[in-house]
Nucleic acid binder design. Structure first.
Lengths: 109, 109
DNA sequence: TCAAAGTATCGACAGTCATCAATGTGTTCC
DNA sequence: GGAACACATTGATGACTGTCGATACTTTGA
């Protein structure tokens, strides 16, 4: 899945008729959110008490294999929705609420 | 594609940890928006001067066949994002902004 | 009733994606 | 150095979906 970070300049769906390129970018962004595992990962990371979570915290609750979780986290990182920071053996993930806000604004009427 | 109309009761992603069932519903809703043709259809319908549009108005600008456009419109209808009204030979589509608002609220931080 | 027009449905196909097992990479600790 | 651990990558596979041609359905008008 090729993921493109959506920019804040994108026109909202209801504002004016979307051009083909804008629609492609927006659709790619929504595609990132169109998976239940990724939504739950994003939710768990955003609600982590320390503000961050590592793969080991996220794998077991979702009932998916470690490679699958790692794959979904990479998709979220590529989309700019979460940030990855490697510290020692662990990889910590933090949410980027501004990115979600951009998508939310694209849905304004 | 099985489409489920998302209800307003759904927890936002950032509010509390999403349960599996909530994540499934939300993901299905975003999947409807995760297609450029559907996004442009929604945009064109919402921005139509009369507030509505028929298939004949929507087919040619998007460069897809009539069955493809009809399919995408059905997906949008099933998701509750647009309404279909048949008058004579024509099928007219109107946007349902409240549905989009529900999705937008699910993305609030 | 018949022909034409606007849509919807069906069947098939190609491309995409979520998933896992196996393996690779980098780090920590003895 | 070597073993153990945390995570990323690869390759393969099954399922899903966007697309179109062909066809069916419905309404209009003659």
């Amino acid at each position: 899945m090729e993921v493109k970070v959506i920019e804040a300049c994108c026109s909202p769906v209801f504002d004016s008729t979307l051009r083909a390129a804008e629609a492609e970018d927006l659709a790619a962004a929504f595609k990132v959110l169109a998976d239940p595992v990724r939504l739950r990962l994003l939710s768990m990371i955003a609600n982590a008490s320390t503000g961050e979570a590592c793969v080991c915290d996220l794998t077991e609750p979702l009932g998916r294999s470690q490679p699958t979780i790692s794959h979904h986290l990479s998709v979220l990182v590529d989309a700019g929705l979460v940030e990855r920071e490697k510290r020692g053996k662990w990889a910590y993930f933090r949410a980027v609420p501004e990115r979600l806000a951009v998508l939310r604004d694209a849905l304004r009427a």
